[in-house]
Every structure is written in C-alpha cells, then in structure tokens.
C-alpha cells in the first residue's frame, strides 16, 4: 500500500552494518519459517481440533500459547496461520515481480507513446483504492486462497513496474545495448536477455521489501473478514478473532500479533541489509 517504497530511498549506509542486518534478518526469517513448516507436525495438536473441556485456557504447559474460544491450541493455529501468511507473502510477491518486471521493462524499452500509455495506466491504477479492487476480485472469483495470492500480487506490481521502467530507461542508452542492437538482436531478446538481468539486483531488493508489505495487506484483509476463511487461519484472522475478548483472553491476540511482528522485523531487516549491500540507491530507482 503506502509503506512499500519507503525503505528503498535510503541513500546512506552505515559501514558494515548491512552484514549484521542481513544476518539477523535472515536468521529470524529462517527460524520462523522452519517453525511454521515443521512445527505443526511436531505439535501434538491439530489446528482445527476443538476441545470443549479446554476452552480459553491461559498459556501453560499443556498449551504453550493457551487455547481459543473453541478449545483449539493457539500455538498450532499460529504456526499453521503463519504458513498461510508466509505463503501469501511469497506467492503474491512472485506474481507482482513477474507482472511488474515485464510491464516496466516493456514500457521503458519501448519508450514514446506506448511508454506514456502504459505509465498513465499505472497512474490511474494508483488512484484506485486497493481494497476496492480486492473486494471486486473476490466477488468475481469467489473467495479462494489462490485467488487471494493472485489478487494481492496483481495489486502490488505498480511500484515494481515504475522502478524497473526507470532502471531500463537509463540502461538502454548504455553501450552494451547498442552493441546488442548492432548485432541484430530482436527487441524481445534485448529486453529479456540484456536489460532484465541487469535490473535483477534492484528487483531482488524490492521484492524482499514487498513480502512484508503483501503480508500486511493479507492480514489486513483477513482482519476485515475478506481474506482467509475459517477453519483455515492466518495471523490476521487469528488477531481479528481474538480482539472481541481482548480484555479477558489477551493471549489470543498477543501471540499471533507478536509472531507476525517478529517475522516482519526479520523481513524488513533482510531487505534493508540487501539494499545497503547492493547499494541500491534512490538515484538508480527514480
């Protein structure tokens, strides 16, 4: 939504600090990913198994994160929810990368009227509220998990397209492109084999920072009851389900919220560290 390109414009990097950022961020992300993937198998509980003798239990030895209003284990629900949240982050980002890179590269390389047309379209899409587009997409295709991924990806590519276009604009005047033209390479070949590989660094950095944005959007939709449907869970639905009983059973909100926050910290640090390491600065992007 809004925060996406915020971290990209940093121009100054602390000497050497990007190593610790990458290391710390990557460790956080790895640990949580492992927990989320392996955890549900190791836990003795199932995420949708209701136990009416254990309703709203506080955290303890039996249930480390307590139980919810249907007696389900909050820990295992958080882990399974994390799977969904991370999956959404990865797949939607991938969708946005594919669309954004193609769109931006074509606009940048074509230039002229096509470029103007494509980029004005992006301007118009920017002015549409994203939640509106998502609601319409959902009512169109039903509320499928895969559609959620695609929809989030389909609305997150705008900034990526702008970034790639900007890079391609400056790259296409470089001698190696001229050389390729002189050798008789087709426009498609130049775009995909010469220009796109050169923007991949920026794309990598930007996609790392898109993952947390998309995850936030997913949780935000799920929080509003538009995303993942029960009995499936994501961090957003877990928090949203816990909010009404916040005063009495705070753990139902705090644990999924904490997990999500830690994951986002890891991803943000990783992205920032990569940005600093690859020295992707604003000049290169805008």
């Amino acid at each position: 939504m809004i925060s996406e390109s915020a971290f990209l414009s940093g121009t100054y990097h602390r000497n050497g600090s990007h190593h610790s950022k990458i290391l710390f961020g990557a460790t956080l992300v790895l640990v949580i990913s492992l927990a989320v993937v392996a955890g549900p198998w190791c836990s003795g509980y199932q995420f949708d198994r209701q136990d009416f003798s254990q309703l709203n239990q506080p955290p303890g030895w039996e249930h480390w994160f307590g139980t919810d209003e249907l007696g389900r284990d909050v820990l295992v629900r958080c882990l399974v929810g994390g799977r969904i949240s991370l999956q959404v982050g990865l797949i939607a980002t991938l969708v946005s990368v594919v669309i954004g890179v193609l769109y931006g590269a074509i606009a940048g390389y074509a230039g002229g009227r096509l470029d103007a047309l494509l980029m004005r379209t992006v301007d118009v899409l920017y002015a549409l509220p994203f939640i509106f587009v998502v609601i319409v997409l959902f009512s169109f295709f039903g509320n499928d998990l895969w559609l959620l991924y695609a929809a989030l990806g389909a609305i997150s590519w705008l900034t990526m397209a702008r970034i790639v276009r900007g890079q391609v604009l400056s790259l296409k005047t470089q001698p190696f492109v001229e050389a390729a033209v002189a050798l008789g390479a087709s426009p498609a070949r130049i775009v995909f084999f010469h220009l796109v590989p050169n923007v991949l660094g920026t794309v990598l950095v930007y996609s790392t920072l898109t993952i947390p944005t998309v995850m936030l959007e997913e949780s935000f939709l799920s929080f509003l009851g538009l995303g993942v449907r029960p009995p499936m869970a994501s961090w957003g639905t877990l928090v949203s389900a816990g909010v009404p009983a916040l005063a009495v059973y705070p753990w139902q909100v705090l644990f999924p919220g904490l997990l999500m926050t830690v994951t986002l910290i890891g991803l943000n640090l990783l992205g920032e560290g990569l940005r600093d390491a690859l020295a992707v600065t604003e000049q290169k992007i805008s």
């Binding site: 947390p212 935000f220 986002l264 910290i265």
Partner: peptide, 22 residues
C-alpha cells in the same frame, strides 16, 4: 523504527487498548 514499521496497526491498536484502557 525497525520495530514500529513491523507492528501491524491491527496488532498495535488492541495492545494499546489493552494497556491504556483495560
């Protein structure tokens, strides 16, 4: 700032309410 950017509003809001109101 690293933490603040990463806390979703729908987590921060309930936590603030829990502390300051409840």
């Amino acid at each position: 700032t690293t933490v603040a950017v990463s806390v979703p509003a729908f987590v921060l809001g309930p936590v603030l309410v829990l502390l300051f109101s409840l």
